[in-house]
């Protein structure tokens, strides 16, 4: 019976690369479809939140440490980007690099603070960390300009031309950054570091007994998370042109967490799906916007109850791929038979 139906999943699995290229082409065409700059801006916000959700996944999904203070790393990245642009006159590309570097430091700091803790205590530390970062942003007036925020962040430039939302420039920057993040993240996940993260998440004691330096890997996870969040923050600063400490609130941290949970922890497509859904739906349903956080609350409760792995999350972690040259048992038997 099954042979008669078109095997969609198998089709998608076999032709993954061409399908991805088609998707990419479609995305690349968006700014030229004559859509309003509002739609383009929403796409840009989807890109920002996708990167943020991926960065949260490094801490929460792959490492298993729920962070409710992720807006702090986002905030650091945004401020670094804004300061680099306004005080040091850097262009966006330099600002992005700086934001990533400082983001690594911030992530590392967060990692150091939470290194001895686990579970709920770690979550609360991330909360407190976020509050402290907000306080610093509000009061370190000489650097951050306090509650007045940083305004007039110059637009991004490439080869002399301005990149804005209107001309689609920021859209492509966002898309490019997202693709970069995805490539980097899947590289990390498939490497020994990714496997180490998952080991630490699933059974820290066991991992330690196998010889993994769990504390180092936890630190690495938060550093990567900080780097990606910093990237997103800097992009946001250039996108909006104005940042202040109030924007990076607990609500934003919870939004990112909800996106990760909805889309699927420890899943890259899940991160994007979660970010897309929770950015687009509030825009489509602007008339119901007053219910937004009510929905988020329900999403959290329902997802945790019914499908904790999220929409696109798989129950298992990423499939373990054997290194090249090692044959699967069945194939080895075949070869063995032929040899004799």
């Amino acid at each position: 019976m099954k042979q008669k139906r078109f095997d969609l999943a198998g089709f998608a699995g076999r032709y993954k690369l061409p399908l991805l290229l088609v998707l990419l082409a479609a995305l690349a065409a968006v700014p030229f479809l004559g859509l309003s700059s509002y739609v383009v801006r929403v796409f840009c916000m989807v890109f920002t939140y996708s990167i943020l959700t991926i960065s949260l996944n490094f801490v929460t999904g792959y490492l298993g440490a729920t962070s409710m203070g992720h807006a702090s790393l986002y905030c650091v990245g945004a401020y670094v980007g804004a300061l680099a642009a306004t005080r040091a006159g850097c262009n966006i590309w330099v600002s992005l690099v700086l934001a990533v570097l400082v983001g690594c430091l911030a992530g590392g700091l967060l990692g150091v603070c939470t290194i001895k803790l686990s579970g709920s205590y770690m979550t609360v530390t991330t909360l407190a960390f976020a509050q402290v970062v907000t306080m610093v942003a509000k009061n370190w007036t000489s650097v951050t300009n306090g509650t007045l925020g940083i305004k007039d962040i110059p637009k991004a430039r490439l080869l002399g031309a301005e990149l804005t939302v209107r001309n689609g420039g920021m859209y492509f920057v966002g898309l490019g950054l997202l693709i970069l993040c995805l490539l980097f993240s899947s590289m990390v996940i498939r490497s020994k570091y990714g496997r180490a993260f998952i080991a630490v998440r699933d059974d820290e004691l066991g991992a330690r007994m196998m010889g993994l330096k769990t504390r180092n890997y936890r630190l690495l996870g938060t550093v990567i998370s900080g780097a990606l969040a910093g990237l997103a923050g800097c992009y946001y600063a250039y996108l909006t042109g104005y940042i202040d400490p109030v924007t990076f609130s607990f609500d934003i941290s919870m939004t990112i967490l909800t996106m990760a949970i909805l889309g699927g922890l420890a899943s890259l497509p899940g991160s994007i799906a979660g970010a897309a859904i929770l950015t687009v739906f509030p825009e489509l349903l602007r008339s119901l916007d007053v219910y937004r956080y009510l929905f988020f609350g329900f999403i959290l409760v329902i997802m945790m109850r019914l499908r904790p792995q999220g929409i696109l999350g798989s129950v298992k972690a990423a499939r373990y791929t054997l290194p090249k040259g090692v044959l699967r048992p069945a194939a080895a038997m075949e070869q063995g038979k032929e040899g004799t």
Partner: peptide
Amino acid sequence: MKKLIAILAAAAMLLSLAVGCGQ
């Protein structure tokens, strides 16, 4: 299969956003 459905759903939503805002 579920993955594909979800991706298609997300794409449909994004498209409807574009259409909806255009209108």
